[in-house]
């Protein structure tokens, strides 16, 4: 199923993308406020798990706590994937798990190894490559749907502190590999495995560095339930919410 629309993405219609990516539904827009907004609307209208919202440009792409995400036309992949999870432990770590799977895929296209920063950022040595924002809609005590928003600077990123995969990298090829990886992350069960923790540690750009937020201390890694671990003068602390700000970062 694909929403009737004249919009195309990299020359492909929604129907062509749905077939190529083996997805039940794809919605394509030239320009939207945020793919997260569209996702919540179509999910409320009973869009199936695996529905993909894709836009060439976002006018109000957003990150955690309403931070703006630059999303220019043709520059990157701005998408939201709708899933309907039922494993609460897996939901706890979905943001981290999606980041891990995305990093593996992006390694194949990036000039350098992709690193991760708790909870939801992807980095190259030159700057921020992308981010993941997970929103879940609850009815009573159960989640109705989860919207996994992903922004990746594929071809260019013309703002300070950002990096892209490369001018010649195909957005279509990245999307074709990214989608199955994110769907696999959403289908995984339980908290992070020992192998996933080891992989996160190998990609963790903050490990061992001094942080100012969410606590003053030294980053000691990530726990199996996704909590950030921070060494402080009073011992190791677990942090479940908030942003990680390193001492050398301005904000």
């Amino acid at each position: 199923m694909a929403e009737a629309s004249t919009a195309t993405w990299e020359g492909a219609t929604a129907l062509e993308l749905a077939q190529a990516l083996a997805l039940p539904c794809v919605v394509v827009h030239d320009r939207v406020s945020s793919t997260m907004d569209i996702a919540n609307t179509v999910a409320a209208d009973r869009a199936p798990a695996g529905t993909l919202i894709l836009a060439d440009a976002q006018e109000a792409g957003r990150g955690r706590a309403g931070r703006r995400w630059e999303s220019r036309a043709g520059a990157g992949i701005w998408m939201t994937l709708i899933e309907r999870p039922n494993d609460m432990e897996a939901l706890d770590v979905l943001s981290l798990r999606a980041g891990l799977r995305a990093a593996r895929v992006l390694d194949r296209f990036a000039p350098d190894a992709v690193s991760l920063k708790w909870p939801n950022d992807l980095y190259l040595p030159g700057g921020k490559l992308g981010g993941i924002l997970v929103e879940t809609r609850w009815r009573g005590n159960r989640p109705e749907w989860t919207a996994i928003g992903i922004g990746i600077n594929v071809r260019f990123a013309r703002f300070p502190g950002a990096a892209a995969l490369g001018q010649d990298v195909s957005r279509r090829e990245v999307l074709a590999e990214l989608l199955p990886a994110i769907r696999a992350a959403a289908a995984a069960r339980g908290h992070l495995t020992a192998a996933e923790l080891a992989e996160f540690a190998s990609r963790d750009m903050a490990f061992g560095r001094t942080c100012r937020e969410p606590l003053d201390g030294r980053v000691a890694g990530v726990a199996t339930d996704g909590a950030l671990l921070v060494d402080t003068p009073w011992g190791e602390r677990r942090v479940l919410n908030g942003s990680l700000v390193l001492a050398e970062e301005g904000t």
């Binding site: 955690r64 706890d92 770590v93 996704g226 479940l240």
Partner: peptide, 20 residues
């Protein structure tokens, strides 16, 4: 019914809570 009332952030996920 189904209107979002608030957000609860937990484990890095923004959870929108609907009215029943």
């Amino acid at each position: 019914k189904r209107q979002v009332l608030c957000i609860i952030e937990a484990m890095k996920i923004m959870n929108e809570i609907e009215s029943e």
